[in-house]
Amino acid sequence: MQEISATELRRRLESGEDLVVLDVRESHEVAEAAIDGSVSIPLGQVVERRNELDPSRTTAVVCAGGVRSARAIQALTDAGYEGGLLNVTGGMKAWLEQQAG
């Protein structure tokens, strides 16, 4: 499984790279904090809603700490999704810590 750090994700987004950020946390978690422009699909719905993702664009998958995003990537891969998927290591916790620092 390919991974990306929160720092690298931020750098790539700020440079204008064409990345999709998929947030697989529950809606109440997303309401507290989210990455601007991210697509929110809870982990339990990610396989059935995979057609909402564009396989021609690399997708960085984020959750709170990196566990659910890894599960989402595995589920999408098992379901035959062919787009590029990156697991955001440390998840939103790392994103917010890096933002505060």
Rank of each mutant, 00 (worst) to 15 (best):
Q2T: 08
Q2A: 12
E3H: 13
E3V: 08
I4E: 09
S5L: 03
T7R: 15
T7V: 13
E8Q: 15
E8N: 13
E8V: 01
L9F: 08
L9R: 09
R11W: 00
R11S: 13
R11Q: 15
R11M: 04
R12Q: 15
R12N: 09
L13I: 04
E14V: 00
S15Y: 00
S15F: 00
G16V: 03
E17C: 04
V21M: 05
L22I: 02
L22F: 06
L22S: 08
D23S: 03
V24N: 04
R25W: 02
R25A: 01
E26N: 02
S27Y: 02
S27D: 12
S27M: 05
S27H: 08
V30I: 14
A31G: 07
E32V: 11
A34H: 12
A34G: 03
I35E: 05
D36P: 12
G37F: 05
S38H: 03
V39Q: 12
S40P: 01
P42A: 02
L43Q: 04
L43M: 11
L43Y: 04
L43T: 03
L43S: 05
G44K: 02
Q45H: 11
V47Q: 10
V47C: 08
V47H: 10
V47K: 10
R49C: 03
R49N: 13
E52N: 09
E52D: 14
L53Q: 07
P55S: 12
P55Y: 05
R57V: 12
R57P: 03
T58H: 06
T58Y: 03
T59R: 09
T59A: 13
T59N: 09
A60H: 10
V61S: 09
V61I: 14
G65D: 04
G66S: 06
R71F: 06
A72E: 06
A72K: 05
A72L: 04
I73R: 08
Q74M: 08
A75G: 04
T77H: 11
D78S: 13
A79H: 07
A79D: 14
G80N: 11
Y81M: 07
E82M: 07
E82P: 00
G83W: 05
G84K: 14
G84V: 01
L85K: 11
L85H: 08
L86T: 05
L86E: 09
V88H: 10
T89S: 14
T89K: 14
T89A: 13
G91E: 07
M92P: 04
M92D: 04
M92T: 08
K93Q: 12
K93V: 12
K93A: 12
K93W: 04
K93D: 07
W95Q: 05
E97W: 01
Q98K: 02
Q98G: 07
A100Q: 15
A100D: 13
A100M: 12
